[in-house]
């Protein structure tokens, strides 16, 4: 009984913390973007502007939640929930610290990859069901981009799996006791960060949204809280990807002096900050550049990394 209660607290706690971090991220991002551009960013609502997100949420709730009459209604409504569900489900396998984490899945890494693949459905269905040519174009781009970057996102992680010899994320973290995998798997890390950026559709790879050409891409017809789902879903995705990078390459909760969960949060926020800095500094590539970059550079690099890692592990027999 008490174990069940403990587990429930664990699950609810993770859900609430993750959601509130994701909800505060728009403010963090806008503040940080402002600072990177020699501005201040939103600093009026509440102390340092932290209540900006609350104001935004109130605004979103008071907006008309419009469903276009030409849209495919059920799919249109389901699509934004898919992205939230898949990403939040992925958090189940993230090992936050020795005691915190929802499940200790043997195939946690595969589960994460599967869930991020399912995220494509959300984008595709949203663009398709809206029955709008721009949203369809955005969805087509999104599907092509996410599918092709998923290929080597999985491959780039296989080096980690080879070294640690397990798909269990908790064991992967434990395997980094002596050396974080960011050193032997530096190529895997780079490839994974780039693929992760494309997966979360963040700015250097935000061709799916591309507000300057496609207006908003796949969520062009969405308004109110349905749009908010996509919006927050993006930030939950950023949090997830950052925590995955930390788990897989930067030793997860491991670190001196501070308690494990604090280390995890510090590292995760470092990568969230890195993603925001990347957004502030890099231009968006052309779509054919994006595709050829993915297939011609990143995929061979990931395969090479896999081959070399496998060879070394096989030769040293460790």
């Amino acid at each position: 009984m008490s174990e069940t209660v403990l587990h429930l607290i664990n699950v609810l706690g993770i859900l609430i913390v993750v959601l509130s971090i994701a909800a505060s991220l728009p403010w963090v991002e806008r503040r940080l973007l402002g600072y990177l551009q020699d501005r201040y960013g939103p600093n009026r609502v509440g102390p340092f502007g932290v209540l900006q997100t609350v104001a935004d949420a109130i605004k979103l709730f008071t907006k008309e939640d419009w469903i276009p009459p030409f849209a495919d209604k059920p799919v249109f409504i389901i699509a934004p929930t898919v992205i939230m569900t898949t990403i939040l489900t992925s958090f189940a396998v993230v090992p936050f610290s020795p005691g915190i984490g929802v499940i200790d899945l043997n195939i946690g890494l595969l589960f994460f990859l599967a869930m991020s693949s399912l995220g494509v459905y959300s984008v595709m269905l949203a663009g398709w069901s809206a029955n709008n040519k721009y949203s369809l174009l955005g969805a087509l781009r999104a599907a092509a981009q996410m599918l092709s970057y998923e290929v080597f996102m999985g491959l780039s992680l296989m080096g980690v799996v080879i070294i640690s010899g397990t798909f269990n994320l908790r064991n992967i973290v434990l395997a980094q006791k002596n050396m974080w995998f960011c050193i032997p798997q530096i190529i895997g890390l780079i490839v994974f960060i780039i693929a992760a950026l494309a997966e979360t559709r963040r700015l250097p790879f935000d061709l799916t949204e591309a507000e300057s050409e496609l207006v908003a891409g796949y969520h062009i017809e969405y308004s109110g809280m349905k749009f908010g789902m996509f919006y927050i879903g993006e930030y939950v995705g950023v949090t997830l990807i950052s925590s995955m990078i930390v788990t897989l390459f930067f030793g997860g909760w491991q670190g001196p002096f501070l308690p494990p969960i604090v280390w995890f949060i510090i590292k995760t926020f470092f990568f969230i900050g890195l993603f925001i800095t990347l957004r502030a500094s890099l231009p968006r590539p052309r779509f054919d550049q994006l595709m050829s970059y993915g297939w011609k550079v990143m995929l061979p690099l990931a395969l090479l990394n896999l081959l070399v890692t496998g060879g070394i592990v096989l030769a040293t027999g460790s």
Binding site: L32, Y35, L36, Q37, D38, R39, Y40, I190, T277, L278, A280, S281, L282
Partner: peptide
């Protein structure tokens, strides 16, 4: 290509510590 991207990321990062141009009216 990666190198130049990293340089621009670093250059943008340095702006974190520069003086703000905003006049808080």
């Amino acid at each position: 290509m990666i190198i130049s991207a990293l340089i621009s990321v670093w250059n943008v990062f340095k702006h974190l510590f520069k003086k703000r141009v905003t006049i808080q009216y």
